[in-house]
Design a protein around this nucleic acid. Structure first.
Lengths: 120, 120
DNA sequence: GGTCATACTTACAAAAGTTATAGTACCCTA
DNA sequence: TAGGGTACTATAACTTTTGTAAGTATGACC
């Protein structure tokens, strides 16, 4: 009855779950520590690396760079480099990224309700 | 301009983000590796520990126990113990947990669209 | 008394994710 | 020649999450 594991890594489990369940696939993509925060800021338009950094005062440059790279790979954002001096790089949501807006809205509503329901 | 960090832990950052942004708060709650998978199975009704284990063949007992405990703490599920022998414990979604259904649906739809858009 | 089933718990280890700190490359300006 | 701004990268340390394997408590059943 119990299926035999073919691999023991965390990653394999994650992939297997995401493969058979689209909500888990989606949750994995938006689940990074800073991913949603970045989305929230980009939803009003494109921003430069330094502007994002200012808006996320607690993030380190490394994490910002890593998250942006991951989000680009996941096709949530588009990166545009302008060959100016000093260098300018702009980040903006892709169509897919913009498509998260209703998800974010629902999540927010659920979060508010959930938080309130805990104060009884 | 840059706010000063009051603590250096990962957790503090997480909390700070969740406090100022409800979608991040919500994402933190549903973001565990197995949380959504468990929700998916409980959405059709209550299940026992062992039944969940069978439905999630790759999960270890430890992870299942941990996740269920966390979900109970987060008020996503309710745990009921029946003083029988052998012991019977049932898990079911709370109202808050059931409230995730539309979120899951949207996430699923977004996931499908996103996956397709990557196959170009 | 020994075995079985259920629903866990514990100790330890590995992996993934995050943070801290410093440094790079580019070219402009003084 | 030195300093400054932007957008990163390198390295290592640290925290959190997940996995492995074994053990516990309860009471029925043989």
């Amino acid at each position: 009855m119990t299926r035999v594991k073919e691999s023991s890594s965390q990653n394999e489990n994650k992939k297997a779950l995401a493969a058979e369940c689209m909500e888990i696939y989606a949750a994995n993509i938006i689940g990074g520590q800073w991913t949603l925060a970045i989305c929230c800021h980009l939803i009003n338009g494109k921003l430069r690396f330094g502007e994002l950094k200012k808006r996320l005062p607690w993030i380190t440059e490394r994490m910002l760079a890593l998250q942006l790279k991951k989000m680009e790979k996941n096709r949530l954002i588009k990166r545009t480099v302008f060959a100016e001096v000093p260098l300018r790089v702009e980040y903006e949501l892709t169509e897919s990224g913009k498509g998260l807006q209703p998800v974010l809205k629902l999540l927010e509503e659920w979060g508010i309700k959930h938080l309130k329901s805990g104060n009884n």
